[in-house]
Design a protein around this nucleic acid. Sequence first.
RNA 1: GGGCGGUUAGCUCAGCUGGUUAGAGCGCCUCGUUUACACCGAGGAAGUCGGGGGUUCGAAUCCCUCACCGCCCACCA
Length: 915
Amino acid sequence: MGELSKAYVPADVEGPIYERWLAADVFAPDGAGSRADPSLEPFVIIQPPPNITGALHLGHALTFTLEDAMVRHARMRGHPTLWLPGADHASIAAQYVLDRILAAEGESRESLGRDRYLERMWQFINATRAIMLGQERRLGASLDWSRLRFTMDEGSARAVRESFTRLYRDGLAYRTEALINWCPGCRTSVSDLEVVPTPETGMLWTIRYHLVDEATGAPDPNAWIAVATTRPETILGDTAVAVHPDDQRYAALVGRRVRIPFVERDVPIIADDVVDRAFGTGAVKITPAHDRDDYATARRHDLPMITMLADDATVNETGDGYIGLDRFEARRQIVAELEARADLEAARPHEMLIGRCQRSNDVIEPRLKTQWFIRTGPLAEQALAATRDRRTIIVPPRFEKVWENWMTNIHDWNVSRQLWWGHRIPAWYCPDGHVNVSADAAGPAACETCGRPAAELTQDADIFDTWYSAGLWPFSTLGWPDDTDDLRRYYPGSVMETGYDIIFFWVARMMMLGIHFMGEVPFRKVYLHGLVKDPYGQRMSKTKGNVVDPLEAINTAGADALRFALLNGTAPGADQKFSDERLEDARNFANKLWNATRFVAGARPASIDAERATRRERSDHARLGPTERWITSRAAATVEAVDRAFADDNYGEVARLLYDAIWSEFCDWGLELAKIRLGDAAVSDEDREATWWTLVEALDSYLRLLHPLMPFVTEALWAVLPHFADDPDLLIVAHWPSAAAGAASALERDPRLERSVGQLLELVRAVRTARAAAGVPAAAWLPVDVLVPAALDATFEALTPAIQRLARARPLNRVLDRTPLDAAPAGSLAVVIGELEALVHVAAAGRGELAVRSGERARIEKDLAQAEAALASTRARLADPTFNERAPAAIVEGTKQREQELAERVERLRQTASP
RNA sequence: GGGCGGUUAGCUCAGCUGGUUAGAGCGCCUCGUUUACACCGAGGAAGUCGGGGGUUCGAAUCCCUCACCGCCCACCA
């Protein structure tokens, strides 16, 4: 047995313990210290590799805590566990961050050039990655560091090239010119998911387009069609005006032509269902190259598509008179000019949704680009089939609907990014326009179509969307495309744990790519956690300044406290508010546990010497009193309840259960009861030892149960307890209490005993209440008479010293019949608990008059009124024939019993209220 | 425009498939130098379970509806 310092200082225990785990090599499924049973199914967590861009936030802390709890739980149950650490290169996010750092130094992407920029990026991310991994250790994450991976390492690169080549070969990757989301700030395309619809008040302008006179070919100054638009600058790219086919107002105009101002282009008026007759003027300008609807309309009508914006969102060479102007400046000038020409019919504020870049917040411009796309239709179908036939389940289930909806309406995935930090698209183009896609890092030896030598081929300048390599994570990290042992053993994963906010970004892509390349789902279960918000329910963000730094929380309260605080408030898929109070409460809990263990360690009977106390012994059953059996039974009940909560993936429930069991049961009652026998000189050594071993037994179980949530403090405390011969040195690899070979499986439930002891504990509570109500000094001894039914006889006898001490009740007299109670003297309070009745003689403490004094009388009368009301409603129910007829017998019986108890309670209280 | 979640004590939340008098932590009030812990212990005050309707012997729990808050999805210029 070891020693515990008087004060619990998390910082002193956490660091050294993590080092011990590392030294013992217990994290890896095949580590030297692993005690995994190879015949059990491996438990594999797929974790979202965090972005290398910076420090971890509380959301990460929740992720790591949940996953670590899952892994530790499975590890203790004997499963080989694999939790593979990693980092995501986060191309657009990383470039965004680095660009800002460079800007502060007066440099830029352009000034450095691709090679030097990437060099700089590696420096940057190597530094941030080290910080990030250090934070994961501080949190206690039991990741298998021997398998550390990165989405930009060679293994990922190979998987990216190989997978993309196969997708291309299978017709699931294609290159085409299409309308994509362009972020002028990031200078790249982004996926639909990265466009954030932002409500804004813009303007809706009504503009006149003059009809072209069919005879002269000139615009008619007196004839026009008015269109409504929120983006007048796109006039420069208009190639038609559309009206609804059934709109009588414009029926005669369909087929006529109008003159587009500034660019002086004549375009047709067409009819299309897409037009909403009720909106604006009922006529819409069509700008195919810069609007999603218009693009679709143009394709139906075979209209020309004119791109009028450059990459930096200035007007390009097609925009006569406005060339080089920023889009918003061009808009301003165009509106002014239209007004000057009297072609601006109206202008009014308009509420609308503007697409903004998730990263840079720039207004996204839809525009035409030639890019690579993944054909998601067939892939999504497979992913849907997998969730529908439950090969992968989603927790909580309500997200299945969201999943279904998204997967059935999925669009093809634009994977080209005009960025530098990421995996280069493995496509090479020959001057004749032939496309070569190659899994070879060096590219094809020659054009596969025309045989031109490699030197004449040029590789696509673009890189992949970050989520492409992330989507390969579950198998690229296990050696794919090679057929490795790891891949065979650890694919598919058991649980994919992540926040619900990246279900589409990441989970969906892993499912689609995993099924396609591996022929089987990448994971059996998707566990989604919620967002961690500030105490006011606001999303934490750097700009709001309400971000809680996990490291700071760890430094002030300890990693265990942070972990417990996060889990204590969690339910699958539910957001939680995080506050200092929560953290403090968790820290207090760790402290409580520390002190309870310190007490148990220090309470070792002298008859067990230090040497003997290094080996765990089973408590001698014959010597266990009701107290000991109660402690054991409650611990057994907790094991059962915790197992159920784990099975339900309800980690918040696990936390609550253990908090209550350890604090309110084990500490408040168990330890206090045990102190009686431990400190009683009249008790035999053997009995005292049995009591102590009982405490060790219960505490040992609680530490095991709590370990997945609070690994550090439990590991430190477990070290001071005696262990069985087959226990390991470290709790992290010790058996789970309910596991078959569990060291603590001797715990047994005894519901009848729990009820008996429970009633006596209630008696203690009632005496305390009476004492407080009557204003009896805490130190004073109160005489108490108790009427004990035969069934409670033995238990009462055994617990008498405990009741005396805990309630400060002395003399504690057993009375044999009710007579003394019926003749309750003034200055005595009657107490009725289940089968027990008692009289607390407060008068004996010099407070007799208080029993009938106004304050106490009001109190008793209130209790009486409550009891009478309860009795009345219970009787009313029993008098109802339909209740007796339809309610289950057990309920009816219970209600009858209740009626009896209430009647007696009312009688007692009446006597007390009016002596 | 669809869809999801939430609404329980001053605050943060538990209350599973309907069944005694709805619970916990924090905060608040009273008391406490009992040899694990004041990051503690004992006791207490505090809730018409968002509103309305329904099903049922019985509803915080199931159904309908309304209100408010939050989120997701969606091509109305």
